[in-house]
Amino acid sequence: MSTDVTSAAAEFARRQQSPLQRVQHQLHRRPWLSPLFLLVAAFIGFFIATPTFLTPNSMGILLQQTAIVAALAVGQTLIILTAGIDLSVGAIMVLSMMVMATLAKDDGMPGILALLIGVALAVGAGFLNGLLVTRINLPPFIVTLGTLSIFTAIALLYSGGSSIQAEHLPRLLNFLGEGFGIGEFRITWGIVVVILIYAVMAYVLSQTAWGRYVYAVGDDPESARLSGVPSKRVLLAVYTVAGLVYGLAAWILIGRAGAATPNAVPDANLQSITAVVIGGTSLFGGRGRLIGTLIGALIVQTLQFGLSQMGVDQQWRVLATGILVIVAVAIDQWIRKVKS
């Protein structure tokens, strides 16, 4: 009887909601809906503005450009879900890339061994960030701001500030830049690896106890701790797994760029954070999905690619990205005010 009364009350409350409140509730339950709408609108707008935008060749290039940001955004999503932020994503990726490329240059070391060492270094860098956050209780912003400078400096010192071209590297390190075509539409193996990363991490977050712990820690760390969740171990694991993803992103970047350079993707940090926020993951933690992050990464690159095809200056593209971030955070704030 009480169940029927509760259901009736819920139905009555739903009918009393205004259309705007219903939209707010839907976005609270499915935060990836608003970025999906924005992505579709962007595709339509750019197609009208420049008919070459939706050609198979252009779409292949767009996906290749999205792969790096999308990969980095996976690790960034994990950390933001715990109400943290990682400013060192690009530095870890570049350091990992330069180490694996330098070790393997001109057959100095087998490609597989250099790759494993580079990825292990990225895992270690993420682990270090996690240790500083969980053991010394430093704010994630301060920790990763510091390690951003440290890892960037190490990468420059180790590489001597010079680039290593593809012809000096073993095929394994360049492999993810290869691919296959369907007509003019080309898919690289790097894109395939990014899709696999998303599939695995989406399963882990939605179907495992560890994934539920990540959301619990981000939503309310004290309540999670009192409920028996090992909050510090979960946080440490989050930063470590993020490091692993950054190491894989370094491998993808070598294939995409056709070289290893210490100055690669200078705005990787901004782009990864932008993709996560636009994708509906809350900066306050505890809410968000990787599908939204993937859509967010596509939006970031679609905006850059479409405006570039229209001949818009880089400064205006940066301005548009900044506006998107502010709008996305404002929408997140509004969604969080939803009344149950």
Rank of each mutant, 00 (worst) to 15 (best):
Q65L: 07
A70I: 04
F47G: 07
A49K: 06
T77L: 09
A70P: 04
F53K: 06
P51V: 12
N57W: 09
I68T: 08
Q76C: 12
Q65E: 08
I61W: 00
T55D: 12
I48L: 15
Q65K: 10
T77A: 09
A71E: 00
P56L: 01
G60C: 07
Q76L: 12
T52G: 06
Q65P: 03
T66C: 03
G45Y: 00
F43C: 11
T50E: 15
L63H: 00
I48Q: 10
L62E: 00
I61T: 15
F43T: 01
N57H: 08
L54K: 00
S58V: 01
G75W: 02
P56M: 06
Q64H: 07
L54M: 13
T66Y: 03
S58I: 02
Q65N: 06
A71G: 04
A67P: 05
F46S: 12
A41K: 01
V74D: 05
A49Y: 03
T66S: 10
F46L: 13
T77S: 08
Q76W: 01
T50V: 15
A71W: 04
A67D: 05
G60R: 12
L72I: 14
F47C: 05
L72E: 05
L62D: 00
F43I: 02
P51F: 09
T66K: 09
A41W: 05
F53N: 03
A67C: 11
V74I: 14
S58C: 10
F43L: 14
P51M: 14
P56I: 11
S58T: 01
T55I: 03
M59H: 09
I44S: 04
S58W: 13
F46M: 11
A73Y: 01
A49T: 15
T52M: 08
G75T: 05
I61Y: 02
Q76D: 11
A41H: 04
M59R: 01
A42P: 05
A73R: 08
L72H: 10
P56Y: 08
L54T: 11
T50Q: 14
V74H: 01
S58P: 07
L54Q: 00
I44L: 15
M59L: 15
P56D: 07
Q64F: 08
I61R: 11
M59P: 07
F47L: 08
A41C: 13
A73P: 05
F43K: 06
L63G: 11
T66D: 02
T77R: 01
T77F: 02
